[in-house]
Amino acid sequence: MSPSALPLFRFGIIADPQYAAIPPHAAMDRYYAKSLAKLAEAIAVFNGWELSFVMTLGDVIDRSFASFDDILPVYEKLRHEALFLLGNHDFSVSSGHLSEVAARLGMPSPYYSFSRHGWRFIVLDGNEVSTFAPPEGHPHRDLAAEMLAALQAKGAANAHRWNAALSDAQFAWLGDEIANAAAAGEKVIVMNHYPVHPPGQHGMWDSERIVALLAEQPNVVAYLNGHDHVGNYGRAGTCHFVNFKGVVDTEKENAFAIVEVYTDRLEIRGFGREESRTLGF
């Protein structure tokens, strides 16, 4: 059997459970309370595989800090490491809880990186400069208002309050992490809640600089995200951009994936509504 016939390792992906104990929003095809059962179903599948970890790409809840108390115990059934990143709806909590969200999800910090099997995973906090995540009075809220107003004045498709941007400090950190990974001989997968490519109404406000950075780095293989529940795919330079579909959408169908990492490609095995893809590099 050739070396590329077996994956180096695998990991699981879940996007946008948006759980809340509230009635469905039928017009938007969102069934918030059903995400508990869908998550349990996904975990049952994940537990049948050997996985390095399972990443949830943000929006664990739809609203209310108390919603974490219902959905996080479901993750305890997972026999693999459960990792998280922050989505916009995770901050749909009272102002007193804004600073507690990352800790409630067991995250080491709002953005972080980790290595597995010679690969580096860079986990972004796409909400850092936003009108909802920073505490009241924080300079990032003022900067977000300025960025949003400028985009609205231009008629930009992504000029929405439910999008956001990286701080300059986090953007510089991203560049440093990619450079450090290259020096260590590591390939890179970047994960974030928000899409950056192809351009669209759900994209980060600073998508252009992020795409420009990732597209010119030969060791950056893929950027994985949620937020736009219908899913999407694009490519810029040698980097694949995959937007996973949202769990919360549809009454009965699930959406999750297992990513198999090979020496020359990523194989995405889609379950439910999620598409399967082969991403060569």
Rank of each mutant, 00 (worst) to 15 (best):
F9H: 01
F9R: 03
F9S: 00
F11T: 05
F11G: 02
D16V: 09
P17E: 10
A20L: 06
A21E: 13
I22L: 14
H25Q: 14
D29T: 08
Y31K: 05
Y31V: 09
K34Q: 15
L39P: 01
E41G: 13
V45S: 00
F46H: 07
N47V: 04
F53K: 06
V54R: 01
M55Q: 13
L57K: 01
D59I: 07
V60H: 05
D62E: 15
R63V: 10
S67R: 09
D69R: 06
V74S: 12
Y75G: 14
L78C: 14
L78D: 09
H80Q: 07
L83C: 06
N88M: 07
F91K: 04
V101L: 09
V101E: 02
L105V: 06
P108N: 02
P108E: 00
Y111R: 03
Y111F: 13
S113G: 01
F114I: 06
H117F: 07
H117P: 03
G118Y: 11
R120V: 06
I122H: 04
D125G: 00
N127Q: 15
E128A: 11
V129D: 01
S130V: 06
T131R: 14
T131H: 08
P134N: 09
P134V: 11
E136K: 15
H138E: 03
R141I: 13
L143F: 06
L143V: 11
A144H: 05
E146K: 14
E146P: 00
M147P: 01
L148T: 05
A149F: 00
A149Q: 08
A149W: 00
K154P: 03
K154T: 04
K154D: 05
K154S: 02
G155E: 04
N158G: 08
A159H: 00
H160A: 09
R161K: 15
N163V: 04
A165W: 02
A165D: 01
A165E: 01
L166Y: 01
D168I: 03
A169F: 04
A169C: 04
Q170Y: 06
F171I: 00
W173I: 10
L174I: 10
L174G: 06
L174H: 04
G175A: 06
I178E: 02
I178P: 02
A179N: 11
N180D: 11
A182V: 08
A183S: 10
G185L: 12
H193R: 09
Y194A: 09
Y194C: 06
P195Q: 03
V196D: 05
H197R: 02
P199Q: 00
P199D: 02
P199S: 01
Q201F: 14
Q201T: 14
G203F: 05
G203E: 11
G203W: 05
S207G: 10
I210L: 08
L213I: 11
L214N: 09
Y223E: 01
Y223I: 07
D228T: 11
D228H: 14
D228P: 09
N232T: 11
N232C: 12
Y233T: 01
G234R: 12
G234Q: 10
T238V: 14
C239A: 15
F241Y: 14
V242G: 08
K245H: 10
D249N: 15
E253V: 13
A255H: 00
F256G: 03
F256L: 07
F256P: 02
E260W: 02
Y262I: 08
T263C: 08
T263D: 11
D264W: 07
R265Y: 03
E267H: 15
E267A: 15
G270W: 05
G272Q: 03
E275I: 10
R277Y: 06
R277K: 12
L279V: 07
